[in-house]
Structure formats: structure tokens, C-alpha cells
């Protein structure tokens, strides 16, 4: 069985221009998210815009800084899977809290029998 550790490259070497390019893109996106939050008044859409920009930044970091784009897909599936569960968790929690109807019954809360 060949070990081949002299010839084989371990991991992917990211070119410097790409590292710096990603960094500047991240800084620009940070400036953009500050600008949209302070100058654009889109009401309820502001939070979604902020989350979209944050997701773009997170994707850049994960793909290039964290090497996911060159890794075998398994690592990416683990991360995306974790995010899917987070979305499931938040989504169902928000659905639940939206269904809460504290004013369904008018007036005082029903008396509770005491012994």
C-alpha cells in the first residue's frame, strides 16, 4: 500500500489573491449591511435583507476561508444540515408563538378548583 505522503498535497492551497478578495468582499458586505440598516427603511423587510447579507458573508467564509468548496461534500452537508435543523427549530418555535392567543377568552381567567 502506497503512503505517498511525499508527493501528495494535503488540503487545497488557497491563492493569496482569493483570500484577500474574499476579505474585501466581506468588508464591503459589512459596510452594505450597516448602510441598508441605517439608510434604507423597508419596514419588515430590513431584517430579511440583513439576514440575506449575513448569509452571503457566512457563505463566503465557509466556502473559501473554511475550504468547504474544495473539501469532499460531506463537511458541507454537515454544516448545511446543522443550519437546516436551526431553521426547523426557529421556524416551528415562531409558528408556535404566533399561534398563541392570550385573548381567546375574554375576562378573568377561569377559576381553578382548590381543595
Amino acid at each position: 500500500m502506497s503512503h505517498g505522503h511525499d508527493s501528495e498535497q494535503v488540503g487545497h492551497i488557497v491563492p493569496l489573491w482569493l483570500l484577500f478578495g474574499v476579505f474585501f468582499a466581506l468588508i464591503i458586505l459589512t459596510a452594505l449591511t450597516v448602510w441598508t440598516a441605517t439608510h434604507l427603511h423597508l419596514g419588515a423587510f430590513n431584517i430579511w435583507l440583513a439576514l440575506i447579507i449575513a448569509s452571503m458573508k457566512a457563505t463566503l467564509v465557509a466556502l473559501f476561508f473554511m475550504h468547504l468548496i474544495w473539501d469532499k461534500p460531506y463537511n458541507g452537508i454537515v454544516l448545511v444540515g446543522a443550519f437546516m435543523f436551526v431553521i426547523l427549530f426557529l421556524g416551528i418555535s415562531l409558528m408556535d408563538t404566533a399561534e398563541n392567543m392570550p385573548d381567546m377568552y375574554e375576562g378573568p381567567a377561569p377559576a381553578v378548583a382548590t381543595e
Partner: peptide, 14 residues
């Protein structure tokens, strides 16, 4: 990565 989400959610609320 976590901070990327924390920053807009805490500091940049409409």
C-alpha cells in the same frame, strides 16, 4: 461566522 449573524441582529435593528 456566529458574529456575522449577531452583529446585524443586535446592533442593526430597524
Amino acid at each position: 461566522l456566529i458574529w456575522i449573524f449577531l452583529f446585524p441582529l443586535l446592533y442593526l435593528i430597524g
